[in-house]
Write a protein that binds this DNA or RNA. Structure first.
Length: 246
DNA sequence: GTTGGATTACGGTCACGATA
DNA sequence: TATCGTGACCGTAATCCAAC
C-alpha cells in the first residue's frame, strides 16, 4: 500500500472584488497542490507540485498572498483545476493507497473543488489518515485541541527546510511527522463528504432575546434580573414547542 | 391503562482553535 | 478575514418504569 501525503493552498473571496459565485458553493478555490508518494517502507517514490490558475476568485486575497507568497502573476500561465486534477489522479496511480492529510479540511475542499468543476469524485480515493488528529493524540492534547503543523514539526525536532504554507513542503512535513508518530493504532478511515450547507437545518429561527426582554421590561416597568431572563427564555422555548398545550 | 418523574438520545448553539 | 470541525453545554422529545 502506498501513502499519498498531500496538502493544498487555497484562495478565497476578496471582499473588495465581489463576484457572481455564491461563497457557499466554493468558499476556497485550490491554487496549489503539493504531494509525495511513499511506499510501505515510507520511502519517497515520487512527488507532485503544481500551481493552479483560479477561475472563480481571480484576484488573490491579500491575506492568502501574504501567508502563501503566491501571487496572481505566478498563476497566470498555470493550468486550471480540471487539468491539474487529472494529472494528480495520474500521479496517485491505481495501486492500493491511502491519502494522508493534515486535518480533514484538505479532503473536504478537494472534493468540493472537484464537484464544483463537474468532475468525477468516483476516482478520488476515500481511504485516508488524518495525521493531525493522530499527532494530537500522540502529544496527549486535551479533547478538541488540534496541534498545528509547525508546532508538531518543532516538537518532533524535524529539520526546517522551507517556510510553511507551501503545499509541497507542508505535505513533506506531514510525511515527516507521520514517520515519527506512526504506530499500530493508526488505521485508515473512510471519508464521507458532507455538504454542510445542504444539511443545515433552516426551520429553527433564532430568538431575538434583546427584543423579548425589552418587551418584558416595558410590561413590568423595570429591568428583568438575570434569573428572570433565564426563566423567560425557557418559558418562551416551551411555548414554541407547545409541549404543555392541551 | 394512566400518570408523573427520571433517564437517555438527539439536535442546536456556542466558543475555541485550526485552516487558507 | 472567512470558514469549518470539535467538544461542551443545554433544551426537547422519547422512552422507561414504578405507583396507582
Amino acid at each position: 500500500m502506498n501513502y499519498i501525503f498531500y496538502d493544498l493552498e487555497f484562495n478565497q473571496n476578496n471582499i473588495n472584488t465581489p463576484n457572481n459565485i455564491s461563497i457557499s458553493q466554493l468558499p476556497f478555490e485550490i491554487i496549489q497542490i503539493g504531494a509525495l508518494k511513499l511506499n510501505e517502507s515510507l520511502e519517497v517514490i515520487s512527488t507532485f507540485n503544481e500551481f493552479v490558475r483560479p477561475t472563480v476568485y481571480n484576484d488573490i486575497n491579500p491575506y492568502v498572498e501574504n501567508i502563501t507568497k503566491i501571487t496572481k502573476d505566478m498563476l497566470a500561465k498555470c493550468d486550471t483545476f480540471t487539468i491539474t486534477y487529472n494529472r494528480f489522479i495520474e500521479f496517485i496511480g491505481n495501486e492500493d493507497l491511502v491519502l494522508c492529510v493534515w486535518g480533514k479540511a484538505d479532503l473536504r475542499e478537494f472534493i468540493r473543488n472537484i464537484k464544483f468543476n463537474n468532475l468525477s469524485t468516483e476516482i478520488f480515493p476515500t481511504k485516508y489518515i488524518d495525521v493531525q488528529k493522530h499527532t494530537s493524540k500522540f502529544f496527549k492534547l486535551s479533547k478538541g485541541t488540534q496541534i498545528g503543523l509547525k508546532t508538531a514539526v518543532e516538537l518532533l525536532n524535524i529539520e526546517f527546510q522551507e517556510n510553511f504554507h507551501n503545499a509541497f513542503y507542508d505535505a513533506f512535513y506531514t510525511a515527516e511527522v507521520f514517520k515519527k508518530i506512526i504506530n499500530d493504532n493508526i488505521v485508515p478511515e473512510n471519508y464521507i463528504y458532507v455538504n454542510r450547507n445542504a444539511t443545515k437545518n433552516t426551520y429553527r429561527n433564532k430568538i431575538d432575546t434583546v427584543s423579548l426582554f425589552k418587551q418584558f421590561n416595558k410590561m413590568y416597568n423595570r429591568e428583568m434580573s438575570e434569573e428572570e431572563k433565564s426563566i423567560i427564555k425557557t418559558a418562551y422555548n416551551m411555548g414554541r414547542t407547545k409541549q404543555f398545550m392541551k
